[in-house]
Design a binder for these strands. Structure first.
Length: 173
DNA sequence: CCCTGATTCGC
DNA sequence: GCGAATCAGG
């Protein structure tokens, strides 16, 4: 694979967006993360903020200091709205999620869903969350990609959604 | 062990 | 210029 103008342009774009070298390599295809890093240097693109940082640390949105969680021992349901733009149309998706106590969600302000690494199908590995996000027919479709423990197909968050016992069953217990 | 970027150096 | 090997780090 050679560095066509197109590929270089894509590299620049993704790098500036804070994707890791390996993620960029996976999206470009046909190159290793070393190749990407090497190219980044040759282009003398700005490096990452701190050396040896982990997952797109520079681009990771910093979370506001967490607000105190309401001490509520009953399960409750929360509806939240996610807005995204598709073309000129703003779509709204509503997710109703059953919350139990001490779920590591932030009910805080806007940041409701755990950040995802927005991995492409080809970027998934044995230990990345394979929870699909978005419409498979659309460009922005991706997978969660967060760490999935113990060869689980999902991260801890999505495993709870995937394997959520029915409300009935929970009441029985 | 998993991952990250940085550097070196033979090609 | 390229990128695998290696290094340094979380």
């Amino acid at each position: 694979m050679n560095w066509t103008d197109e590929r270089v342009e894509k590299l620049k774009k993704l790098w500036s967006e804070g994707l890791s070298a390996s993620q960029i390599a996976a999206q470009l295809g046909g190159v290793s993360r070393n190749a990407v890093i090497g190219k980044v240097h040759r282009l003398s693109l700005p490096g990452r903020a701190k050396a040896g940082g982990s997952t797109a640390a520079a681009a990771r949105p910093k979370r506001a200091t967490s607000a105190p969680r309401a001490p509520n021992y009953a399960a409750r349901s929360v509806t939240r709205t996610v807005t995204r733009t598709a073309g000129a149309t703003a779509l709204k998706e509503e997710l109703a999620v059953d919350l139990t106590i001490d779920q590591e969600l932030q009910i805080d302000r806007n940041i409701v869903l755990p950040m995802s690494r927005r991995l492409e199908l080809t970027e998934l590995t044995e230990r990345t969350c394979k929870w699909p996000i978005g419409d498979p027919l659309k460009e922005e479709f991706h997978f969660c990609g967060n760490d999935s423990p113990e060869a689980s197909p999902y991260c801890t968050f999505h495993a709870r959604l995937a394997y959520q016992p029915s409300a009935e069953r929970r009441r029985m217990r």
